[in-house]
Design a protein around this nucleic acid. Structure first.
Lengths: 195, 195
DNA sequence: GTCTATATGGCGATAGAC
DNA sequence: GTCTATCGCCATATAGAC
């Protein structure tokens, strides 16, 4: 087993749950059954290790959206697939979701640029095209594409809170329910944009 | 000037930006021009100070939504006011927004229950009623009310990233643009629910 | 590549004077 | 109510043996 990869995988899990300052190099070393010095053999310092871990977490999800944009589908089918896929990834890979949330909180502009250009731009451009096709206009495509992503992300993010709000049902947290109702809510709104 | 309140206000600002583990009692004491011991005169430990700061940040915003639910308005007008108000609060009080994001990341279940019952339940119930009136059904009201909040929150939260995605315009970050387009997207979807 | 041992400094929290 | 001084511990990071 590749030691470096083992460290990275463990680091993603720990950092995503407790943040940069909440995880010590000792904690991490103990989690991978190594001494701290052994960890420092692979990474020059904690900062570099953290950035590598973030990069690792995003790289793992890069391929998740490949099947979404296949040509032989209608724009609505593509949107449907994208929303389902996003909901699934964010629900199943909790570490990824939390690293993402933490990066948005930190909001280091240099890292945001890297993330935008290297990780999200491709998917976002595809989503904008689909949104333009459904609405029949290029107006507001950026904002609408953003809204699709935002809605799915924050509904999942708010689950620990919404569980305790009136009207909650367990069903609301399934990937299928989220995908179906997000689409129901948005599709008609997107269509009306072009009119 | 009330020393305790001064400490709390400063604590909200520091914790919201750097998190619990990212702020030391020394940092905080220096920011309020006191010794650490003086801070410990007001709060028995760091944990209690953090929780008090969170409570303080939420209390400050409790009154922001008072004018939203006035009776002499249509349901759509109320929804409009709520969305504008939420977008304004999250945009103007960055510390509040970040404390909220951090609490959701921590997701301590006991704290989530307190937050749900003491802070959000009132507003959320009102929002559910409005959503039911617009859609003409009680079905999915919880999920739809949640969607309204989630959409506004995450659009603002993702601003540091969306700035670097294709199609972005400065106008997209104004409270007015967000409120208008969130409503445009959602209203028709909510209306269709009842059909 | 992994270890033990250690340097150096910051951490939360307390004691006790004023 | 605020201070200085300090305790005991844990942090990041390095040195050097195997």
């Amino acid at each position: 087993m590749d030691s470096k990869e083992h460290i990275l995988q463990t680091a993603v899990s720990l950092f995503s749950r407790q943040g940069f300052d909440g995880v010590s190099m000792r904690d991490l070393a103990k989690s991978v059954n190594m001494s701290t010095s052994a960890v420092y053999h692979y990474f020059p310092n904690k900062q570099t290790l953290y950035l590598s871990a973030v990069h690792f977490a995003f790289a793992k999800q890069a391929s998740a959206f490949e099947e979404v944009w296949q040509c032989d589908q209608s724009a609505e089918q593509k949107l449907n697939k994208f929303v389902s896929c996003l909901a699934r990834v964010l629900t199943e890979d909790v570490d990824f979701r939390r690293i993402m949330q933490r990066e948005l909180l930190d909001a280091d502009d240099e890292r945001m640029q890297l993330l935008a250009h290297n990780v999200f731009q491709e998917q976002f451009s595809q989503l904008m095209i689909v949104v333009e096709q459904i609405s029949g206009t290029q107006q507001h495509a950026h904002f609408t594409a953003l809204s699709v992503i935002a809605l799915v992300c924050d509904i999942i993010q708010m689950q620990p809170l919404s569980r305790h709000l009136p009207g909650w049902q367990a069903e609301h947290e399934t990937v299928e329910y989220i995908a179906e109702h997000v689409l129901d809510l948005l599709i008609s709104g997107i269509k009306i944009q072009g009119k």
